[in-house]
Design a protein around this nucleic acid. Structure first.
Lengths: 206, 206
DNA sequence: GTCTATATTGAGATAGAC
DNA sequence: GTCTATCTCAATATAGAC
């Protein structure tokens, strides 16, 4: 959500917002041009096609995810803590690039065919799956749940939190990340010895 | 996924499959007609517009959800058990109408404007939220997690399980429902007294 | 770098014969 | 109930003046 410096960035930012709101196909180049304040033909000075705009939006998004995940992994935290930080990192990307996030989530079909994005998506998946496998191996995570099932659940939970506008605005990113992590690690059942939940939540901000 | 009897049903079923796979806008009436084995003009004998086909697919889906949820509620089970059964009921709808489910999940933007679907979606949401509120009130569910946050997480978990093709084919619906419910209620942390997980899972099939 | 004007294509939908 | 033929419109993209 950085303020666009030049025309090109303005076009990308404007298009991203409109794609997220109305969908890629439903947004015409004329509408984008209108919103930017130029005529449709002018867009083609910066981009060879509408699709090229989409690609720019999505590669920025995937690069951001890649960088943040790498940073989290570099810290060398334990499994539970790493999971927590991956959730938070994802939410940070989502809050920083809400439009790109929405596009990425909603236009999966659009992306399926484009090999250029396959790799980025696969790398993100690998990060999660390796973490889960490690946790299971260390006995920290349950072995009776198929890793892929857990991966899908937490992936969707994380990215879907941002479908609508800020989910119940009252929560900060950190609070939402805590809630998600806490549910996934400790469950929604009320426990007498709720000390587990408290201790790990408190441990988050090391 | 019942075998279509007449032309009309065949058109709906074919269109649903294509909409789910390629998206609504990306699927043309000509393609639908081709797949059915007629020419595009003939479709308009059965439907006044492409949009009418979409509406038929989605109202069937919502009606199915409504009916199954009502049946679950009618059993009068306790909170945890009802939650479990709602998960299973949702997965059953998803497996019975995979195309409609995919369309419903992926075309939320398409649906946003249509008031005729708002009510059905709102009713389903009400079922989940009232259950969660009741569980919190009874002290069965945690009070420190905002109900709406939990609702969103489990809703997405349930419906998203069916985005791709059968998620890791090896699991039956019941097994997947058990895994999802178990994670959301008991968490992913390995516990020594894992008897909790075992007992509730065993209790599922009363 | 932006505009005007337009080419081109593809989509949903219709009319009327069979 | 289906086909042939076509209308109409909207969208991406281009060419070339300014």
């Amino acid at each position: 959500m950085t303020e666009p410096q030049d025309r090109r960035e303005l076009i990308v930012a404007t298009a991203a917002e409109m794609f997220a709101r109305k969908g890629i196909r439903a947004t015409t180049v004329r509408e984008i041009a209108d919103a930017v304040g130029v005529l449709s033909g002018s867009l083609y000075h910066y981009f060879r096609s509408k699709d090229e705009i989409v690609q720019e939006i999505l590669s920025e998004f995937l690069e951001e995810v890649r960088a943040r995940y790498a940073e989290v992994l570099g810290r060398g935290d334990d499994c539970a803590q790493t999971l927590r930080e991956l959730v938070l990192a994802s939410l940070r990307v989502a809050s920083q690039r809400p439009s790109a996030t929405a596009i990425y989530q909603n236009q999966l079909r659009y992306l399926r065919d484009r090999p250029e994005f396959k790799e980025g998506a696969a790398e993100a998946q690998r990060v999660w799956l390796e973490l889960i496998d490690r946790g299971v191996a260390e006995g920290v995570f349950r072995a009776d749940i198929p890793p892929r099932v857990f991966y899908r659940l937490i992936r969707d939970a994380v990215w879907m939190s941002w479908r609508g506008p800020q989910p119940d605005g009252m929560y900060s990113l950190e609070e939402l990340a805590d809630a998600i992590t806490s549910i996934f690690l400790e469950g929604f059942i009320a426990r007498p010895e709720s000390a587990v939940g408290t201790s790990t939540a408190a441990a988050r901000r090391r």
